[in-house]
Write a protein that binds this DNA or RNA. Sequence first.
DNA 1: CGATATATTGACAGGAGTCAAAGAGGGTGG
DNA 2: CCACCCTCTTTGACTCCTGTCAATATATCG
Lengths: 238, 238
Amino acid sequence: MPVEMMIRKLRLHSELPDENVEALRAVVTPVKNMPEDSLIVREGDLSTQCCVIMSGFAYRSKVSETGKRQILSFHIAGDIPDLQGLPLKRMDHDLTTLSPARLGFINHDALERIIESRPALARALWRETLLDAVLFRQWIVNLGTRSASGRMAYLIGELRQRLAAMGLVANEQFDFPITQSKLADALGLSVVHVNRVLQAFRTEGVLDFKRRVVTLRDLERIVELGGFESVEEDGGRA
Amino acid sequence: MPVEMMIRKLRLHSELPDENVEALRAVVTPVKNMPEDSLIVREGDLSTQCCVIMSGFAYRSKVSETGKRQILSFHIAGDIPDLQGLPLKRMDHDLTTLSPARLGFINHDALERIIESRPALARALWRETLLDAVLFRQWIVNLGTRSASGRMAYLIGELRQRLAAMGLVANEQFDFPITQSKLADALGLSVVHVNRVLQAFRTEGVLDFKRRVVTLRDLERIVELGGFESVEEDGGRA
DNA sequence: CGATATATTGACAGGAGTCAAAGAGGGTGG
DNA sequence: CCACCCTCTTTGACTCCTGTCAATATATCG
């Protein structure tokens, strides 16, 4: 049951009665398989449903008027990357698969109906969209205050933590099928420089980024370089 | 009635019955005057109330482990900059006054009580927190894709638009009492370079940043430099 | 009118971008 | 099974935007 990832993540952040969880589970439509680089929703679209990542990766991005694409965030199994579309409707960015992915969908009308009578669920979803914003703020700090290698280390560190919470890290190694060009778009760097940073990490034994798989060789250094600090340990719960 | 700014902003983004607005107005406590550079809430705090800016400016910031402070956003009259504290409770960043400011406060318990029976209001607040996230995403694009002057132009352009929506821009001129050092922290640049950019803008007749007041001399250029595009014209309404 | 914060300048250094070309990998079709 | 192609990665040379350091000028304020 791949919906479990989503449930797991929600319950990591909010207390939820079983009944609410069941109601939510019931409105997730059958899974759809999508190849990599498929646009799920486009900036400007009016959303009528939101998507649940069952497996694989997705990313949100925007292109600035300068023509450069900025990747805003990466999403993993369990995430609902366009949940904010429920209240906002109009998408302010694109959502694309990074790898082949299995997606579930939740129709907005159906979701509205079930949260109407379930305040705890409504609140949990609100919190979920705000935890998203927490990551954006951290990303701003990352872009604004760190050097190229620091940014890269931070990205890997954050990803590792989120994947670990979903049980997707084994032996300090995880799947992350991304090109250096997309890394560059996420970090606000040039492809060439991303390559240089990765090379350095490899030769210095910090981490290895081969064949869609990241291997963390010196977690200590990564945490240090990325100035990474643990987040959402309690999901901000009171 | 300085609460009107907040009401005005909410209604710009969401349809709200008069009754809801009255209920909301009723829970805003009397205004408190704060001098500039006063910390309103600190990272790590558990919020029990949220604040409404009646007049003046505030900013949200985080310090990265490198010791550098990153300013995440600026807030103006009408904003509720820590609204996300209602569902999240634990603050992930600081909130500080940029200028002397008049603030109102809304107790969380009181707010919970009034939104419990007013779904439209609850939804409006949810949307408000998400519009905040829209701005964060744009800021990520700004930091990740633009040059120093582009970032500066974008900041000014965004601020102008938000101030204009609150009726705080006259003759392409508005109050913005900030030091170059804080601008640097917001833009991810050094103070020296911020100074250079501002100098250039001044001599090229793009804009003037004197004595806490910004004068836009060539809006065309600013929009062009900042690649600024209009947002929240409809607040994302369906 | 000092005292302190802020703004401004100049010289210099260096991280990251750009350009261009060469390798590697991974598919695909014959 | 190999040749070919296309995308992605890697390298090297060179440029330049932005940071750093340090000194000076200007504001602001009690």
